[in-house]
Design a protein around this nucleic acid. Structure first.
Length: 97
DNA sequence: CCCCTGACTAGAA
DNA sequence: TTTCTAGCCAGGG
């Protein structure tokens, strides 16, 4: 695990309940703008426990293949979801309250 | 090294 | 609003 991966994971595990953000924002916060794809790759491959359900793409689309579980987990954190998309969340990139 | 693929994105059609 | 086009990065064949 290199330095970039470590920093990105640090940002991920720091996400709080109800805080929904995007791949691009995670990359920015970790100090690696333009590396959104790397974030997605890490989320899919890492063995470390991270709140993956609090990450969606820039359009608010849920993770392909995990919509069901992700929707359930987000609803428990008071995140508003409509048609498989995050409409708004208490905090983070999709905060609309 | 080339080509394709994907939990990505911003901007132009 | 939806679709396409470049850019972007790491992996795998």
């Amino acid at each position: 695990m290199d330095d970039r991966e470590r920093r990105i994971v640090d940002v991920l595990i720091a996400l709080q309940p109800g805080e929904v953000t995007t791949y691009g924002d995670i990359a920015d916060m970790a100090g690696y703008p333009k590396h959104s794809r790397l974030v997605g790759r890490i989320l899919q491959a890492t063995e470390i426990e991270v709140p993956w359900w609090r990450v969606v793409n820039a359009a608010g689309r849920l993770v392909p293949g995990h919509e069901g579980e992700q929707t359930k987990l987000l609803l428990e954190e008071d995140v508003i979801i409509r048609n498989g998309n995050v409409k708004s969340a208490p905090y983070g990139r999709f905060s609309g309250f």
